[in-house]
Amino acid sequence: MQETSPGYLRGDLFKTIIENTPLVSVDLIVKHKGKILLGKRVNKPAKGYWFTLGGRVRKDETIKSAIHRICNMEIGIIPPENPGFIGVFEHLYNDSIFDDVSTHYVNLGYEIEVSDLEDLPRDQHNEYRWFGLEELIQNDEVHKYVKDYFTTQKGTVPQQKES
């Protein structure tokens, strides 16, 4: 991310924030013809796992604006006017992009239906794949927090910490 882009946080400031507060993020459950798009993460946390696409909500950014920005940056589309809200989830990781710092996310899950996608970015995910629901649930390379979007009863917050 360029230092001049809105929402940019210097490394030392971002580290302090991650050490001391949860991050609020939007996770997109991207669907097409009954399948779910996941990307293989290249960065910590959840590096090497198949994961939903998404990103953090920036200071003074509405959730609607964050969804629009994230849809544009992560999958190159304009989101539907009212994406389907599926719930609030909590992700607790023992690691982060910084050594010896854990990460705590409060995730807002949204479901969107898309048509064909092309030229997906490679800075957060180096591979993309469409999963059927049963395959997603059974695959050990799909992160357990992704599975929570499909196996947790709506209105409850999974609170297990990653080991």
Rank of each mutant, 00 (worst) to 15 (best):
L120P: 05
G34A: 08
G34N: 10
V157D: 08
I77N: 02
I29V: 13
G48K: 07
Q153Y: 03
N72P: 00
V57C: 07
E162N: 09
Y149W: 09
I18E: 10
V57P: 05
R69G: 01
I18D: 04
K15Y: 06
V101T: 13
L53V: 01
D140H: 08
S5D: 15
N20S: 14
H32M: 14
Y128T: 03
L92M: 12
I77D: 01
N82W: 01
N43F: 12
E135D: 13
D123N: 14
K33Q: 15
T4Q: 10
Y149I: 01
L37N: 10
Y145P: 05
D119Y: 14
L108I: 09
P80C: 11
V142H: 09
Y105C: 02
S102R: 06
I75E: 04
G11C: 05
R122M: 09
C71Q: 05
G34K: 10
Q2Y: 08
L117A: 03
V157W: 03
E127W: 05
L136A: 07
I36P: 01
H32F: 11
F14Y: 13
G48Q: 11
D27F: 01
G7H: 03
L92E: 11
P22F: 09
E3C: 00
L133M: 12
M1E: 14
I75K: 07
T16M: 12
L53C: 04
G87Y: 01
N107F: 05
